[in-house]
C-alpha cells in the first residue's frame, strides 16, 4: 500500500546506466578541417549521422583554448549531437559547461599510454645505457596491446540470419557484418569492417564506412546496386557483366574498387 503511494509520488528515479557512446577523438582543433572530413564521412554513411550523440575527445590536442562553440556547430550541421567533452584544460572544461555540455576527465587508455611509452622508448634508444630495458618494455607493451583490438573486433562482428529486405538497413558500426541469406534490391548493409554475404547481394553494400581501406565485400552472387569500400564506390552499371550473378570479392586496390571472382 505505502509502496504504491511512494511510486505514485516519485517523479523520477536515478539509475546507473552504461550506454554505447561514440567518441569523436579530435586530432585537429581547426573547425574547417573537421567540417571537410565530416562532409566526406556523411556521403559515405549517411545512416550514421542521425543526430547521433557524440563525446568530443580532446585529449590529443595541445591547444589550451579551443573553438569549442564552432566545433559543436560544425558537428550539429552534420547531424552529430555533441553531448560532452572529454579531457582538455580547465578553460576547455569551463567553456564546455558554458555551452551546456558535460565534461569528463581524460581517460588514460592503454593505447595512449602505450603510444607515450613507445615514443619515450625511441627517444631513449639513442642513449645506449637505457637501450635494452627500453626495448623489452616496448615489446611487452606491444604484446599486451595486440590481443585487445582482436577481442574488440570479434565482439563487434554482427551476424544476421535471414533475408535483408527492401527498405531495411543492417549495419555493424565497428566490426564485420555477416549475412546468412540474401540482401535484396533496395536493402542496405553497412559495416565498419568487411561485409560477408552468404547469398545473393542485390542491394547496396558499404564496407569500411569509417574509412577502413582494407575492408572488403564478399558475396555468393553479385547483383549489387552499389558497392563501396571506404567511400570508393561502384554502381551496378560499372560492374563487368561477366561478374554478374557470380561469387565475387570486392577490395580497394590501386586507388579504385577491384571486383574479382571469388575463386
Amino acid at each position: 500500500m505505502s509502496l504504491k503511494a511512494d511510486t505514485a509520488d516519485v517523479a523520477f528515479t536515478f539509475k546507473g546506466g552504461m550506454l554505447p557512446m561514440t567518441i569523436m577523438e579530435l586530432s585537429s582543433a581547426d573547425p574547417e578541417q573537421i567540417r571537410q572530413q565530416l562532409q566526406g564521412k556523411l556521403v559515405q554513411s549517411p545512416a550514421f549521422f542521425q543526430h547521433t550523440p557524440v563525446v568530443l575527445g580532446v585529449e590529443k590536442l595541445d591547444a589550451p583554448n579551443l573553438a569549442l562553440e564552432r566545433i559543436c556547430a560544425v558537428c550539429r550541421e552534420h547531424k552529430l549531437l555533441p553531448v560532452a567533452v572529454r579531457g582538455g584544460t580547465d578553460p576547455v572544461r569551463q567553456s564546455a559547461w558554458a555551452l551546456g555540455l558535460g565534461w569528463f576527465a581524460p581517460v588514460e587508455s592503454d593505447r595512449a599510454r602505450r603510444l607515450a611509452s613507445v615514443a619515450v622508448d625511441t627517444k631513449e634508444a639513442s642513449t645506449p645505457a637505457d637501450g635494452p630495458g627500453g626495448e623489452s618494455q616496448a615489446a611487452d607493451q606491444q604484446q599486451h596491446s595486440t590481443p585487445a583490438p582482436d577481442d574488440q573486433q570479434s565482439a563487434s562482428t554482427r551476424l544476421y540470419r535471414g533475408t535483408v529486405r527492401s527498405g531495411q538497413q543492417v549495419s555493424a558500426a565497428e566490426g564485420d557484418l555477416i549475412v546468412i541469406g540474401a540482401v535484396n534490391a533496395g536493402a542496405e548493409v553497412l559495416a565498419g569492417g568487411s561485409i560477408h554475404i552468404y547469398g545473393p547481394l542485390r542491394g547496396r553494400a558499404l564496407a569500411g564506412i569509417h574509412g577502413n581501406l582494407s575492408a572488403g565485400i564478399y558475396c555468393r552472387e553479385l547483383k549489387a546496386e552499389l558497392l563501396s569500400v571506404a567511400g570508393n564506390y561502384k554502381r551496378l552499371e560499372d560492374v563487368d557483366l561477366r561478374l554478374l550473378g557470380e561469387p565475387a570479392q570486392v577490395h580497394y586496390s590501386s586507388e579504385q574498387l577491384e571486383i574479382k571472382p571469388l575463386a
Partner: peptide, 13 residues
C-alpha cells in the same frame, strides 16, 4: 516483387 519485399520487412518489424 520489390514492394512485396518491403512489406515483408514491415511485417517483420
Amino acid at each position: 516483387v520489390r514492394d512485396s519485399d518491403r512489406i515483408l520487412g514491415l511485417l517483420a518489424s
